[in-house]
C-alpha cells in the first residue's frame, strides 16, 4: 500500500489523453527519487468539504445490474476494513448508503434493486463492493439502454447508459519481461470498427488469486488514435484495490506484470461515451465528468463485455 501513489501515477501512464502528462510525471517522479533528501509526515487542516453521494453502478450483457452507494469522506478519515469488528461495522453506515431506493428500467421492465451484504466480509475477507444493491429482473442486452434512478434522503439522481457491442480479440499472446522472464504481460489484437466511435477498457483476474476483475493499467482507450485499425492492446496487471487481498506470493509479484504460473482471465469491454468520459476524467483530469444527473459523483456504466478463455502464463518457450 505504500506504493499506492506510485501506482496511481502509473495508472495514468500512457492512458488515453494522459500521454504528455504521464511523461512529465515520470520525469518528475524520477527527479524526486534522485534528489529527495527526506519526507516527514505533516498534519494538514483541509477545512470543510461538501458531503455528496457517490454512485457506482454497472450493467453488462448477460448480467443483472448492481449499484454501490457511498458517501465521500473527509480526506483524512480512517477506514477500518474489518467488518467483523464494531468499528468496521460502523463504517458500513458512515461510508455506505444502506437505505436508498434504487431501481433500473429498460423501458418496459422496472427492476428494484435489493440491498445485500456480501457474506465474505463477515468472514474477514475483503471484497469490493462489500455491500451493494443488486437487481434480478433485468438482464443486460447488447444495444439496450437502461435508466437508473436512485433516491437518497428524498433527493433523486438519474442516469442512463447503453450496452455497446462487445469486441472479441483476434489473438492473444504473452510478452516476457526482458530483465526477468518470470514476468509477462498479455497482448491482445483488437479490430476497431471504423464506422463507430468506440471506447474500450480491459480487466484481468488471476484465477485462484484475485477475488474480482481489476482494471488493467493503460487500457482505457477511445478509438480517436486508431479508428478503423487493428490495434495492439497491452494488459498490464492492475493494482490491487483497497478492498482486495493478494493471497499467493504477493511479495514476489512485479508491479504491472503477471507471473509465470498465473492463470489469467481477461474481460474486454466496450462502453458508451458517457461512461468513457467519466473513467477518462477520473484518471486524467481535475474535473470529473459524471454521467449522473444531480449533485452526485460517479457513473452508471454499461459494458459490452467479452470474457476470454483463461490465459495460462507459461514459461517462455
Amino acid at each position: 500500500m505504500k506504493n499506492k501513489i506510485n501506482r496511481a501515477i502509473s495508472r495514468r501512464l500512457f492512458s488515453s489523453g494522459g500521454v504528455i502528462v504521464s511523461s512529465i510525471l515520470i520525469i518528475s517522479v524520477l527527479m524526486m527519487f534522485i534528489i529527495t533528501s527526506c519526507s516527514q509526515e505533516i498534519a494538514i487542516d483541509t477545512g470543510e468539504y461538501t458531503k455528496r453521494p457517490v454512485i457506482e453502478g454497472y450493467i453488462e450483457n448477460g448480467s443483472s445490474p448492481w449499484v454501490c452507494l457511498t458517501y465521500n469522506q473527509a480526506f483524512f478519515t480512517e477506514i477500518n476494513l474489518d467488518f467483523t469488528t464494531p468499528e468496521g461495522m460502523s463504517l458500513l453506515t458512515e461510508l455506505f448508503i444502506t437505505d436508498a431506493t434504487v431501481f433500473v428500467s429498460d423501458g418496459s421492465t422496472v427492476d428494484t434493486l435489493q440491498f445485500m451484504i456480501d457474506p465474505a466480509i463477515l468472514e474477514g475477507n475483503y471484497v469490493w463492493p462489500p455491500v451493494k444493491y443488486q437487481g434480478n429482473k433485468i438482464v443486460g442486452q447488447v444495444g439496450g439502454t437502461y435508466n437508473l434512478t436512485v433516491i437518497i434522503d428524498d433527493e433523486t439522481y438519474t442516469a442512463y447508459t447503453t450496452i455497446t457491442t462487445p469486441v472479441i480479440p483476434d489473438s492473444i499472446w504473452l510478452e516476457y519481461d526482458k530483465a526477468n522472464e518470470k514476468y509477462c504481460w498479455i497482448h491482445a489484437m483488437i479490430q476497431d470498427n471504423a464506422a463507430t466511435a468506440d471506447y474500450y477498457n480491459c480487466f484481468a483476474k488471476r484465477l485462484g488469486r484475485d477475488n474480482y476483475f481489476s482494471e488493467c493499467s493503460n487500457c482505457l482507450w477511445d478509438d480517436t488514435y486508431f479508428n478503423g485499425m487493428a490495434f495492439e492492446a497491452i494488459a498490464y496487471r492492475g493494482s490491487s484495490s483497497l478492498f482486495s487481498m493478494d493471497t499467493v506470493n504477493a511479495a514476489d509479484d512485479k508491479f504491472g506484470a503477471f507471473t509465470v504460473g498465473d492463470t489469467v482471465q481477461l474481460k474486454v469491454v466496450t462502453m458508451d461515451e458517457g461512461s468513457f468520459r467519466f473513467w477518462q476524467s477520473l484518471l486524467n483530469s481535475s474535473v470529473v465528468h459524471s454521467n449522473i444527473d444531480g449533485d452526485a459523483i460517479g457513473v452508471w456504466c454499461g459494458y459490452g463485455a467479452y470474457y476470454t478463455e483463461p490465459v495460462i502464463c507459461v514459461e517462455k518457450p
Binding site: 494538514i44 483541509t46 477545512g47 480526506f75 478519515t77 461510508l95 469490493w128 481535475s286 459523483i297
Partner: peptide, 16 residues
C-alpha cells in the same frame, strides 16, 4: 489540497 476522497471500484480518488 484535497479535502475529501471517494471510492470507486475499490480505489480512492481525491476531491480538491
Amino acid at each position: 489540497i484535497p479535502n475529501a476522497f471517494y471510492i470507486i471500484n475499490g480505489n480512492m480518488y481525491i476531491e480538491y
